[in-house]
């Protein structure tokens, strides 16, 4: 048996999350003593061959207009057929918005168990993922021969293996599936989209009003970070709803999360507790967020943030 990884592409090119999932799948394949096959849709053979660097030894390259817009049923049909073609018992995908939509359908087609949001490389038959919104981890085991593993983006990192991949055309049968019609694709435009940002600067009610966000945006721009906010800030329309991180908003896992004037309610922490490094700036030394932080500055945001901006500019020069 082999391992199959789905290599998601956007307008003919792979993203970082694709290279991450391929290198993760390579480690899964190595642990099982299997070869790694990737499946990609509507990319050039040269782009497909790139996956060799990250551990794929063979790429099934599918060219089909039915896959140019995303539909979960059609994607699942193509990936499940690729798994059969490759003789794969394990299918690995990235838990991106599209991955979440089609991977469970692949599991149904292959009669496989599925675990999504996996954050570590499996040990034996066990995969680990955060549960209870990051308040605990669970080790899942599969009761099935076939497995689908959906890994959380930005949890494992990219690894290069320096190999090369052969590329072969693959033509799954995709007729007769009733899917969706994509009418419009809206890229987030400007700035960095929050859900996949590696650096995030976030602010809360401590900023007193929307007119004070200039310094937060300036800091974010300097770092190349996305901006975010707490729920009360979104609910009072100081900031747009799509910036709300927390239990009922967006859950993020950046490398760095800087929280300014946010007390750190448990609902907020549930959306950010998978961040690798947390910096908290708050004038209240008793703010609960300091307990979850790696670095903290006790001080008034209106004094501390401008100083941080100046210090960053000075250190970057």
């Amino acid at each position: 048996m082999s391992v199959l990884v789905f290599a998601e592409s956007f307008n003919g090119a792979f993203k970082k999350s694709t290279f991450e999932v391929v290198s993760y799948a390579k480690r899964v394949a190595d642990a099982q003593g299997d070869a790694l096959t990737a499946v990609a849709f509507n990319v050039s053979d040269a782009e497909a061959a790139e996956l060799g660097k990250y551990g794929a030894s063979n790429v099934l390259n599918v060219s089909n207009d039915a896959l140019s817009g995303f539909d979960s049923g059609i994607y699942a049909a193509a990936v499940a057929q690729a798994a059969q073609q490759a003789g794969a018992a394990t299918v690995v995908v990235s838990n991106t918005p599209n991955g979440k939509a089609f991977a469970p359908r692949v599991a149904v087609k292959l009669n496989a168990g599925i675990v999504s949001g996996v954050s570590e490389v499996p040990t034996g038959n066990t995969v680990r993922k955060p549960v209870f919104s990051g308040k605990a981890y669970a080790d899942f085991t599969f009761n099935t021969e076939h497995k689908v593993i959906a890994i959380q983006p930005n949890s494992i990192g990219i690894q290069e293996f320096g190999g090369s991949a052969s590329v072969e055309a693959f033509s799954p049968s995709l007729d007769g599936i009733r899917g969706v019609t994509v009418r419009e694709v809206k890229s987030a435009g400007g700035g960095v989209p929050l859900p996949e940002a590696e650096l995030v600067v976030s602010a809360g009610r401590g900023l007193k009003g929307p007119e004070n966000w200039g310094m937060i945006e300036e800091l974010a721009d300097l770092l190349g970070a996305a901006t975010a906010c707490s729920r009360p800030v979104a609910d009072t329309h100081w900031r747009p709803h799509h910036e709300h991180v927390g239990q009922t908003g967006v859950a993020i896992r950046p490398n760095l999360y800087i929280a300014v004037g946010i007390s750190g309610a448990i609902q907020h922490l549930a959306g950010v507790n998978q961040s690798k490094v947390i910096v908290v700036i708050n004038k209240d030394p008793e703010a609960p967020f300091f307990k979850a932080a790696d670095y903290g500055i006790v001080g008034d945001a209106f004094e501390v943030v401008p100083k941080l901006i100046d210090a960053f500019k000075a250190s970057a020069n």
Binding site: A107, A112, G113, I114, V115, T126, V131, G134, K135, A136, Y137, A138, D139, F140, T141, F142, N143, T144, V279, V280, F290, K291, A292, A293, D294, Y295, G296, I297, V298, G299, E303, V304, K307, L308, D310, A311, F312, A314, S315
Partner: peptide
């Protein structure tokens, strides 16, 4: 098709490292 073999609480976070508000360069 899957079962949970074991749960684990995350490792206790070490104490926060506080940085003097007058020395912001230290954070960077």
């Amino acid at each position: 098709k899957t079962s949970v073999a074991k749960y684990q609480l995350p490792a206790e976070k070490g104490a926060v490292k506080l940085i003097d508000a007058d020395n912001p360069a230290e954070l960077w």
